[in-house]
Every structure is written in structure tokens, then in C-alpha cells.
Amino acid sequence: MAGPIQNILVYIDGSEESVTAAEYAVCLAKSTGAELSALYVVNTRALNDLVKSRIFIASEEQEYQEDLENDAQKYLDHVKELAHKKAQPIELYQKNGAIHSEIKHLVEDLDIDLLIIGELSKIQSRRDEFYNEVERAMRSVPCSVLIAKDEDLVWSHYESLA
């Protein structure tokens, strides 16, 4: 009988915490034999909001979108390298849109049974609870969610993989 974890998605946003999540995801995929995918969302929803509220002019929107797409490529490449170093196959996805909804859509499209995310930032005000995009995703996805914590311990597990 197959185990409960067969299809893992790790969400990457360029933060140290999300890189730790990727290392954890590689460890878990190796030990369970699960398939592994990684997602980076270019937050075009926020970009559009900044243009609508007239904070950004059109040239800024284009410039920042290019920056974000370059970031996406850079961080997805990094995660690919983390996986390949441990001979773990990985599928990479870059999506544009609102973070929480793109995570949810990919979880559903790929029939993911475990979403791995990095440690969430500390809640410092009521607004933080309302607007944390990854927390919204965590609450709305239909699968189990794992929050990877303890950067040093996760790195040590990752390093010890054959």
C-alpha cells in the first residue's frame, strides 16, 4: 500500500525560510519516494494594485515585473540544484498572479498531497493575520501542510543525504 505522501509541492519565495523548506522537501521526497515539485509565484496581483493605486507608473510596473521574473528563475534554479545534488528529480513551476490562489490552483492541478512552506513571519499586528498570503494559502489548500522550521537542523539532514 502506498504511503500518505506521494506528491509534494514546496513553495519558494526567495526567503531563507523558503530555501529551508526546499531542503526539507528534498529530504522528505528522498525518504518517501514521493514526486517533488517547486513553485514560485510572481506576484503580479500586487504589481497591478500598485499601478491601480497610481504608486507605480507603467515603466516601473514593467521593470519590477522583469526583476521578479529574474528572481523567480534564480530561486527555482537554486532549488533545482539542491534537488539534483541529492539525485532527487524535481518539476519547477513559475506562475503569475496572486500568491495564495496560485498555490491553491497548483495543489489542485497536480493532485498534491503535501504542501511544504517555510516558517511564517511573526504576527505583529492584526493586519498581519489578515494579509499574509502564504498563511491564506495554508488555510485554503485541500491537502496537508508542513511548515519547515529550524534551518540548522534541516540543513544538517539535507547534508547527510546520500
Binding site: L47, D49, L50, Y64, D67, L68, R127
Partner: peptide
């Protein structure tokens, strides 16, 4: 840029 956009969005 990602964090810059986040900060601007939150202020907006």
C-alpha cells in the same frame, strides 16, 4: 524587488 513591492502594497 519582491520585498519592495510587498512594502509598497502594504502601505497602499
Amino acid at each position: 524587488s519582491g520585498l519592495h513591492i510587498e512594502a509598497l502594497s502594504e502601505v497602499a
